[in-house]
Nucleic acid binder design. Sequence first.
RNA 1: GCGGAUUUAGCUCAGUUGGUUAGAGCGCUGGUUUGUGGUACCAGAUGUCGUGAGUUCGAGUCUCAUAAUCCGCCCCA
Length: 434
Amino acid sequence: MTARTLQGFMELLPQEQIVFNHMKDVIAHTYELFGFAPLDTPVLELAEVLLSKSGGETEKQIYAFKKGDTDLAMRFDLTVPLAKYIALYNNELTFPFKRYQIGKVYRGERPQKGRFREFYQCDIDIIDRDELNIVYDAEVLAVIYTVFSKLELPAFKIYINNRKLLSGFLEYLGIADKTVDVLRLVDKIKKIPEEAFLAELADLGLADKARDGLLEFIKINGTNEQIIAKLEDFNIGDGLFAEGLEELKTVVAQAQNLGLPAANIQIDLSITRGLDYYTGTVYETFFDEYPQFGSVCSGGRYDNLSSVFTDKKFPGVGISIGLTRLFDQLRANNLLPIKTLTPNKALIITQDAAFTEAAVALASKLRAQNIAVDVMYRQCKFKKKMEYANKIGVPYLVIIGEEEAKTKLYSLKDMASGEQKSLDAAALADVLLG
RNA sequence: GCGGAUUUAGCUCAGUUGGUUAGAGCGCUGGUUUGUGGUACCAGAUGUCGUGAGUUCGAGUCUCAUAAUCCGCCCCA
């Protein structure tokens, strides 16, 4: 029997897991800072619930199985479970409802770089009844900006767009019926050459004029202000396009109002997002220097979250950090925000077994003051104990031997500097707390 | 689902036109007189060469099959 782990499932060594958890904690704390309440839903749901809104792709990727006569499936995102949750409990919830959820989701796809079969999504969503204020679309930007800043990651940009712009533009061109196919193609514009793009548009049956217009539209670039000015120049009139432009202007203005640097928010008219439930603002996040990581945080606004479960209308806006991908890519490029390698602040070692009692007593005293400490009971050469301390990366070492046990003055060694002091329990705690 | 590549020590890899006992670096274990680590030096262990078959006097090396892994496409965090 060979021990192995399924492909597409991430398993970490302790020192990596500590960094991963640190990132997860920063994300959760930041979400709460913005008033989002925690939510946890089951990993398993009835297959019919998860597949209720799916297109062909999710059905292909979802893990589904039968237990007895019941068709079950593992959640492939956190949005569909949220839609179910809202439909179930909306009478007991207070709106606008802000929740965050951090959990594993499952997709049975071909794992490749940055793609996993089991991965963490860190979601926030704001849901309201009937109408959801557009300022929330900007607040979502502020949350993501704050998370990435706190994680001390490389320079990043959140790219935003509004689906109504492109849909309205297609409406104007008289090709609204092709919207879904065109959106899919627009999403690929950065990956394929311009000629291929135009050729595929032609395959969709678009006239030359429409194709040129579309290309010109997508290629609009510049600062956010410049892009907005150019969009206004289109002068398409009322309708979806005007609505989208108005929303986009508000989001940009409010983002500025929330104090987000212009360098981190960029309008990009080619961002469309594949999922077809988005109806307004859409987001994708890339690192400036590492575009190959892919989007590490994406989302958008949807008009009617729970439409398959209820007739009530619940518009929402949300975004999700793909923590597993983010971590994996950062690790591969030596960019992990490493704070500490062990949960312990100090390791207590003894000269020999005779001092175990003293070590345990000291450990208890320190733990009572909320200081994480570990005691090494294994007896071996002193040098080995040092090596152990060194390898686990503990910042301080406490040494208890004959002298220390007698005087109650413990030797505290700073592992980084090598400096060593004799301190009583109280003074030692002060150093470890500081 | 379609296409391409890879597979040799725990990890990253080298291994000539097929030749006898399969290598390096890192890591690991031990040591350099046992209460002081990270550096250095010394010593050591570890492989069914992915698996199965074939060609050959002889296969890590050539052929075929199979599996696993990786990379594109599709889709997506």
